[in-house]
Design a binder for these strands. Sequence first.
DNA 1: CGTGGCTTTGACACCCCTCAAGCTTTGTGG
DNA 2: CCACAAAGCTTGAGGGGTGTCAAAGCCACG
Lengths: 224, 224
Amino acid sequence: MRIYEEKVAFLKKCGLFKGLDASALARIVEAAGMAQKEKGEVFFRQGEKADQLFFLIEGKVKVTQLSPDGSQIVVRYAGPGELFGCVPLFGGIAYPASGTTAAVSKVFTWDRETIWKLMDLSPKIALNALQILGDELSELRQRYLELATERVEVRVSRALSRLSKKMKTSELLLSRQDLAELTGTTLYTVSRILNRWQKNGWIAAKRGSIQIKKSSKLFSVPEK
Amino acid sequence: MRIYEEKVAFLKKCGLFKGLDASALARIVEAAGMAQKEKGEVFFRQGEKADQLFFLIEGKVKVTQLSPDGSQIVVRYAGPGELFGCVPLFGGIAYPASGTTAAVSKVFTWDRETIWKLMDLSPKIALNALQILGDELSELRQRYLELATERVEVRVSRALSRLSKKMKTSELLLSRQDLAELTGTTLYTVSRILNRWQKNGWIAAKRGSIQIKKSSKLFSVPEK
DNA sequence: CGTGGCTTTGACACCCCTCAAGCTTTGTGG
DNA sequence: CCACAAAGCTTGAGGGGTGTCAAAGCCACG
């Protein structure tokens, strides 16, 4: 059964299912639903009842949060092999954010009861989940620290650095607006900064794309 | 054995040990170390090897993080019944922050191997840990959103609101500096804001203490 | 080839940081 | 009990980084 083994291979890439035996993996695959969405569609919306956990097989997903006054921030970008919409894992009631595709994306899904049943059968999953949440927490703390103490220019540089590392590419497909929401600033300020860097030859910016040319210059922190 | 039952009673208050049977609790209490620190002493320092998990029995603990350029932020305040220094729970190597007492504090401690052994014996602990981390993550996200989108005055008001709810008191014992590090601003700005509120009769501010008088006014968000 | 969504650019304002100085409270030792 | 020092707090002046708004350019797509 080719397709079945393919699925298992994908799952193994995900930290959540590390160290599980074949029978557990089989259970997990069996319980998984699948879905595919075009660019710009949503998997879940902020405030909705959180009854599904998602695993990104391929594509890119943007997780965003809306503040009461209407401004939006990007919580994170998820790439292939990552989980998103993790709330059901830890018993949250509603999604605190929205998950939108930033490119055609394929996912596995499990619903809330299923994932709890699976964790019950394979406690290792819960331990793995802990680690994933822990990593997410520590990255968010890092960004929080930056947001509180660094200037916009530094934050944008760090964001690009993190993204290019995560996506394993020097060409990042995101708009000024996206980058602004990711770093807690405005698209105007981002635009000015990118142009400055472009003039220095550190990047090549196009509409909806930023190609990193001289990462050494770009990522050497100007600090204050 | 009076003292033993007292310890168990404390533990039950903590989400981490919810739903465990007597024998499991016994194991946990047995494995726990105890410590007490005066105000201003530290339990662990940022960067140190993370080999202990802490449970605050009584007192108050400030968790702070230092940025490379030397400025400091307050990640959170922990009150009685809360865990802190959770890194060992999810396999982190070093503490990403420091834990200092903000008042005389008593704690239980478990070291890394112990807590993993306990989780192995009682998988319920891992599930509970997931929930705790999840809550922490969602609070941090909330604060991140605020930091990115709200003005200082609103952030300070929210911080006071959250703290007074958590500590279950209207008199908060913290300095302007602490409040500034908690909201990502400077003590000067905090001082000005508090004075304004004081003149309105919304709070009574003293050295090292803020007494909330009119929470309705204070917490009614000025939004933008 | 027009329309709509990104992006750039300028002008302007203002929030808030920075620095400096002085004040008040608390604690300590004579 | 007073004097002094240290720590925390207040207040003012000044400047700069960024947000805000407006307008125009540019690119992609139908």
